Simulated assay, not measured.
Amino acid sequence: MAAPRWDLGPAREPLGLIRALQGFFSVFAFATLGGFQGSVRFRLSCAGSPNTSVSAPFAYPFRLNLAPFTPSLPTLCNHTWASDVHLIGDFSSSAQFFVVVAVFSFLYSLGSLLLYLGYLHLYRGTGGKLPLVDFLATAAFSFLWLVASSAWAKALADLKASVMAPLPHCHPPVVTCTRDTPTPMGALNVSVVFGFLNLILWLGGSWFVFKETHFHPPPVTTSTTSM
């Protein structure tokens, strides 16, 4: 394999600069989603019993149907609930797909940026093969970001509706259920924003990669002769 010729010049060109931005914002996309933790809390007022607080924690990958309320509801309020109560919905497929796209986007951005900085002479000297592969990969990631961001935005809307659902079998005055302040979901909203921002970056970056392929004609230069 040829020795690298390290040069920071491509990092100051749109080709390398956008690759660096793509990797940077990919990290933020999966970090804001993968690191989220929240919970749903209710205060129960049972006739003849002191108030009790119950909660159901949830986090990535958001399999809410596996998140039961604790302490166990069947032990409270004179067995009002016959079995444990879970949150509603499984949003893991959309969340995990979003994170997988973000992780592989980061890895590809890092790898291609190293290629630009160390092997640009090979990248541009392979008869257009590497730029063409790079362009096809960039276009594919643009499509994946579109699908992943749209799917996660829809799943997030459904997730918010799920955590705002009332607790079943609450019939005042026998059992009164009061919702505590829900966990803020600003980080999840930001993850959607980063998803569509990555889509814009990958779409924009595809143009600069396309210019490296042999399909893009070189600029026409005109020469002037003095009379």
Rank of each mutant, 00 (worst) to 15 (best):
P4V: 02
R5P: 01
D7C: 06
L8V: 15
P10I: 08
E13M: 14
L17I: 03
L17E: 12
R19M: 04
A20D: 06
A20V: 13
L21D: 10
Q22L: 13
G23A: 07
G23F: 09
F25K: 03
S26Y: 08
V27F: 14
F28W: 07
A31N: 06
T32W: 04
G34C: 08
G38A: 07
S39W: 01
V40H: 06
V40E: 06
A47Q: 13
N51I: 14
N51L: 14
P57G: 07
F58M: 03
P61W: 07
F62A: 11
F62S: 12
R63V: 12
R63P: 10
T70I: 05
S72C: 13
T75Y: 08
L76Y: 15
C77R: 09
D84M: 13
H86E: 09
H86Y: 12
G89D: 05
D90R: 00
D90A: 00
D90P: 01
S93P: 10
Q96V: 11
Q96W: 09
F98R: 07
V99R: 06
A102D: 02
F104W: 07
F106L: 15
F106T: 09
S109C: 13
S109W: 13
L110S: 14
S112K: 06
L115K: 14
R124F: 10
G125T: 05
T126Y: 04
G128I: 02
V133F: 01
F135D: 05
L136R: 00
L136K: 00
A137D: 00
A139I: 06
A140V: 02
A140G: 08
F141W: 10
F141T: 00
F141E: 00
L146I: 04
A148C: 13
S149W: 00
W152H: 00
A153E: 08
A153P: 11
A155D: 07
A157C: 09
A157F: 08
D158V: 01
K160V: 13
K160S: 10
S162T: 03
S162G: 13
A165E: 14
P166R: 12
H171C: 03
P172N: 12
C177A: 02
R179A: 15
R179K: 13
D180H: 11
P182L: 05
P182R: 01
P184T: 01
L188Y: 07
V192K: 01
V193G: 10
V193L: 01
G195S: 00
F196S: 08
L199W: 08
I200P: 05
W202D: 03
L203H: 04
G204I: 08
S206W: 11
F210I: 05
K211V: 06
H214W: 12
T221R: 15
T225S: 07
